[in-house]
């Protein structure tokens, strides 16, 4: 499967990946409306950690053996056997956050539902990768859908 790989040597800590992630997961799909008019403001699925000197964007690794899927008490968190993408079905998620507590990458955010990267399903390229100004994020085949 294809995954988002972050190259910290190129990360600028500009956090535009977060901005465009929120936009991609907004109602309006418009940067300004998503941030200024929508309530609640969408949550970014990717987080830049560190500071200007050293930073890296972290999002779901879509693990081969996802701890979040194993721990999900409702079956809302699933790994698609074909695409390998791990997604949370919001209609079934009850927001218990067991997934957040077991995810070793710390990439699941809490809210009414568990919020996590879905690799922008349906798009050629995730919004974070598409809009990274310095090619710090790349979308590459890493082998194995599992």
């Amino acid at each position: 499967m294809k995954k988002v790989i972050a190259r910290e040597e190129h990360c600028l800590n500009c956090k535009l990946c977060e901005v465009y992630c929120r936009t991609a997961h907004s109602q309006s799909k418009d940067v300004i409306k998503a941030h200024l008019r929508e309530n609640p403001v969408p949550v970014s699925r990717i987080t830049v950690q560190g500071d200007n000197m050293l930073s890296v964007a972290v999002n779901c690794r879509h693990c081969d053996k996802p701890a979040c899927v194993e721990a999900c008490i409702t079956g809302a968190m699933q790994k698609d056997p074909e695409t390998g993408v791990v997604t949370c079905d919001e209609s079934r998620c009850i927001g218990c956050m067991t997934c957040m507590t077991v995810c070793g990458f710390g990439v699941i955010k809490s809210g009414k539902f568990a919020v996590k990267c879905d690799l922008c399903q349906g798009e050629d390229m995730p919004a974070c990768v598409k809009n990274c100004p310095n090619n710090a994020l790349v979308y590459v085949e890493v082998g194995g859908a599992e």
Binding site: K3, I5, A6, E8, Q49, G50, L54, V56, V58, R61, F105, G106, V140, V142
Partner: peptide, 18 residues
Amino acid sequence: SFMMFSKEVRTERLTGGV
């Protein structure tokens, strides 16, 4: 945060060796 790990560990974990 991932900044708590050494560069090697961080890179290995985040890229899975890719």
